[in-house]
Design a protein around this nucleic acid. Structure first.
Lengths: 103, 103
DNA sequence: TGTATATATAACGCTGCTGTTATATGTTGT
DNA sequence: ACAACATATAACAGCAGCGTTATATATACA
């Protein structure tokens, strides 16, 4: 999941969420060089976030549905954990109140 | 929110979710030096994730309820965005299918 | 076949983050 | 006042990650 921590990579994913893109199209969308884009795509590819197919001399990238669903589920688990922590804190504070009241 | 990206910092937050701790208690919980813990605590403090109060020569750290709720809400928004992306991808794939069928 | 285009890879520098050791600050107890 | 303890800060080393330029590879087209 660390593959998505980078801002540019998130931007690439967002761009691909709207539709498939070639490398050059992505390059024109971001203010960094083509090799930099290619490396981000490589990271995303190895993480299973995107897939690519060669069409002539062009290479089209698209999101991987299965992995994207996994990420969505991961985000849900993440949210649940934070809610659990928040709840635990609330309980902890309540206990403190009880303790104080008991005295 | 980047304050929570670090693994050790997440561990500290988890430890504090179970109850307040002094710096030394936290140090004994992790395999890194006391200055390292203190710096993590500083990052968390400046991000508003934790608070500390000096009690004698000891300093007790605790989670900040308000910020923790913010994080929980952020996680929820994060999840929603990923679900939206996933949905967008599904729609995109459907459109492709339509296009193909139309031919 | 040679040239232009599209993409990937290599090599390198910079920056930021985490860790460490050494040191400063503050508090308690004698 | 001093010794011991708890915590914070400073200064520095090491590593990972991103960016760049230069170069390799593959395809299309004259």
């Amino acid at each position: 999941m660390a593959a998505l921590a980078d801002g540019t990579r998130m931007g690439i994913v967002e761009a691909l969420a709207a539709g498939d893109r070639t490398v050059n199209e992505l390059v024109s969308l971001f203010p960094i060089s083509q090799p930099a884009i290619s490396r981000h795509l490589r990271v995303l590819r190895e993480a299973g976030v995107v897939e690519s197919k060669a069409i002539g001399k062009v290479r089209v990238y698209q999101l991987n549905a299965a992995t994207l669903r996994d990420v969505s589920e991961w985000a849900d688990r993440c949210r649940q954990q934070w809610e659990a922590r928040f709840d635990a804190l609330g309980k902890h504070l309540d206990e403190l109140k009880e303790t104080r009241r008991a005295r």
